[in-house]
């Protein structure tokens, strides 16, 4: 079989399939704008929840439960400290109240915490933080270490890597389309379903004498603008903007300004960090934010449209694709794409 795309979804699918005995080739152009290379690495379905995205929440929670085993098989460390969602003004505080009420209705646990409790958990938080929501079950992972580990695991099972996409018709066996935002151009059935959703993101490294990064993943609303800080051993990942402007890969001045300003409100010490990288990536958007994981044709499977949740949904996606492969294509052409 051939997997088109060497991001987290493509590699996870390739690894699972190869481990199950399928001969696998991964076609990967290694774009510097691939969603999983640029991503922050939050595995945080709970704080990502919002009315209207119930299916995404359910699938995310299902995948989150698979993550500890997935990471252990790959020997990739997880940060298990959890997420703190913060508010910095009264309206943002109300948004957290709404999120909390919604999560409670959905049967998900999250604890409302006061400013004092927050600063006990994370003394480096800025003084204007008002209150928060603590979600201890959320995880995070170093996305680039994960991609390295997935490639190593694929090689261990003799997955072949190439940059040259052979024409799909010439390939015998099944093709899995896992090319993120670029998937829309790889099959007509994805043409008006998948769209690129641009995100700009910064990587900051701590310097001698600076406060170390937070232990938790920090998500905040600063005057209505969402921002997140995902800790790494040497610093943090600061994200992210969200625009729908096609495949525009520029990092704009305004994006960097907004992200830094809002991050400084939440975690003032970032001003002394080194600005190590600015990057833009493309999430693969779908109409309902749910991934498309299904047969598109008798020899084509789609595994794309993961939007903001590619890393989180990698285990559940790989598992579903493997079961599609084992069941084989549905007898009639088409599937329900």
């Amino acid at each position: 079989m051939t997997v088109l795309g060497g991001g987290v979804i493509g590699l996870s699918v390739a690894w699972y399939a190869a481990r199950a005995g399928f001969p696998v080739t991964v076609v990967d152009h290694a774009s510097p704008h691939g969603g999983s290379w640029v991503a922050g690495g939050m595995l945080a379905p709970i704080t990502e929840a919002w009315p209207g995205d119930e299916d995404v929440l359910a699938l995310g929670v299902e995948s989150l439960a698979l993550w500890p085993g997935f990471a252990e098989d790959l020997d990739v460390p997880l940060n298990r400290t959890g997420t703190l969602a913060l508010a910095t003004d009264p309206a943002d505080n109300e948004v957290l109240d709404q999120l909390h009420a919604y999560l409670t209705r959905m049967g998900r646990s999250a604890t409302r915490v006061t400013r004092r409790e927050l600063r006990a958990l994370e003394p480096g938080l800025g003084p204007t933080v008002r209150s928060g929501l603590s979600v201890p079950g959320d995880l995070s992972v170093d996305n680039r270490a994960l991609l390295d580990a997935l490639r190593a695991a694929c090689r261990h099972y003799d997955v072949h890597f190439t940059e040259d996409a052979e024409p799909p018709t010439a390939v015998s066996g099944v093709t899995v389309i896992a090319a993120g935002a670029w998937s829309r151009d790889l099959h007509p059935a994805l043409r008006n379903v998948i769209r690129p959703v641009k995100g700009e993101i910064l990587r900051l490294t701590a310097r001698p004498g600076t406060l170390p990064p937070p232990r938790h993943t920090i998500r905040a609303h600063v005057s209505g603008r969402p921002v997140y800080l995902v800790p790494r051993t040497d610093g943090l990942v600061l994200g992210a903007t969200q625009h729908e402007t096609g495949f525009d890969a520029d990092v704009t001045v305004g994006a960097v300004r907004d992200l830094l300003r809002d991050a400084e409100t939440v975690w003032p010490a970032v001003a002394e960090y080194a600005l190590a990288e600015t990057s833009a990536g493309f999430r693969s958007g779908s109409p309902d934010n749910m991934p498309v994981i299904d047969w598109l044709a008798p020899d084509v499977i789609a595994a794309t449209g993961h939007h903001r949740n590619g890393l989180l949904l990698a285990p559940v996606t790989a598992r579903r694709v493997l079961s599609l492969l084992r069941e084989g294509a549905p007898p009639r052409e088409g599937g329900d794409s």
Binding site: N192, V193, I194, R195, E244
Partner: peptide
């Protein structure tokens, strides 16, 4: 206009 993807699948479509 600044947040527009005219290439398909988005708000415009």
């Amino acid at each position: 206009m600044r947040r527009l993807d005219s290439s398909g699948g988005g708000v415009l479509d």
